[in-house]
Design a protein around this nucleic acid. Structure first.
Length: 279
DNA sequence: CTATGGACCTGAATGC
DNA sequence: TGCATTCAGGTCCATA
């Protein structure tokens, strides 16, 4: 493969790094204005003006959703495939792909999203139907205490699909996107085509550890699966240097020098080492 | 219920 | 140079 992906790629580490980069700066801020650009994946669900005067009390995360807790209600922000957030003191003129400006007393949070698969949705609470529908079926947080190997094994035991698309589906464990799915399976020595329910407990235990390891190291490295990923301060991450297989089709495996292979599962590219990853 | 393919949208890289 | 095709981070939804 001659090219690296070259825009932004928000998987869980990128979303978490983004959250950490502006959460403390926006906390307590009063909303002065909300400007929405072109339509995103779903409508905001409320008149933008109605949020003026509220305060942002907290910025949390569930899977790849950012949850901006307001005095009255919550704002869900999803970065989709190409979204990124930038927080700055002043508000510059929005570009064609800047589809949200949340102007507050402490700065402006801007969503830049060329492909518009991202979303900004308001709800009165996390129990509101519109939001509940989005969050209800999410799997366990991979970096939390609830992600336990034994439970993971039980959940995978009910799935006949290949392990790679099961990871991507996000209803067993959230946040493992297309890049980190390939990376975690490589780290665990598991072929992406193995049926989820055929994995032994020891192999699932290795996968469990690999997912936690890959994701937590990516967060610690400042996120960035992508060459020009930047957090909300405009600072780049550097985790892409650690990719073992993703985007490396035809290149020698870093462990055994066998050429990395690629295949398509569920219309998504998968990368693996045929030597290191056992069926 | 599970599994699969299509859909959404834009830009960059590649191919003819 | 110009235009068509392929591919890219996610995930909801309709269909088997």
């Amino acid at each position: 493969m001659l090219c690296l992906p070259c825009t932004r790629m928000p998987e869980l580490p990128e979303v978490e790094v983004t959250r950490q980069s502006f959460a403390h700066r926006i906390a307590g801020a009063k909303v002065l204005h909300l400007r929405m650009g072109k339509p995103l994946r779903w409508p905001l669900g409320v008149a933008p003006q109605s949020l003026v005067g509220q305060r942002v009390t907290h910025v949390g995360r569930r899977g790849k959703y950012l949850l901006l807790q307001l005095t009255d209600g919550v704002l869900l922000v999803h970065l989709g495939m190409s979204g990124s957030l930038h927080f700055s003191k002043d508000t510059s003129e929005p570009g064609v792909h800047d589809h949200m400006d949340l102007v507050t007393s402490q700065g402006t949070l801007r969503l830049h999203d060329p492909r518009r698969f991202g979303a900004v949705v308001w709800a009165s609470s996390l129990d509101a139907p519109v939001v509940h529908k989005l969050l209800a079926h999410l799997g366990v947080e991979p970096l939390g205490d609830d992600f336990v190997a034994q439970d993971f094994y039980q959940a995978l035991h009910k799935r006949r699909a290949p392990i790679k698309p099961v990871l991507l589906a996000g209803d067993v464990v959230v946040g493992v996107g297309n890049i980190y799915a390939s990376e975690a399976l490589f780290a665990a020595g598991i072929r992406p085509t193995v049926r989820a329910d055929r994995l032994s407990l020891p192999r699932v235990t290795r996968l469990h550890a690999a997912i936690r390891d890959v994701l937590s190291r990516a967060v610690a490295a400042g996120g960035s699966s992508m060459r020009d990923f930047v957090n909300a301060h405009g600072q780049a991450g550097h985790f892409q240097q650690a990719w073992a297989v993703y985007g490396r089709a035809g290149q020698p495996c870093r462990a055994c020098s066998t050429p990395v292979r690629t295949l398509v599962q569920g219309q998504r590219s998968t990368y693996f080492c045929p030597q290191c990853q056992k069926p």
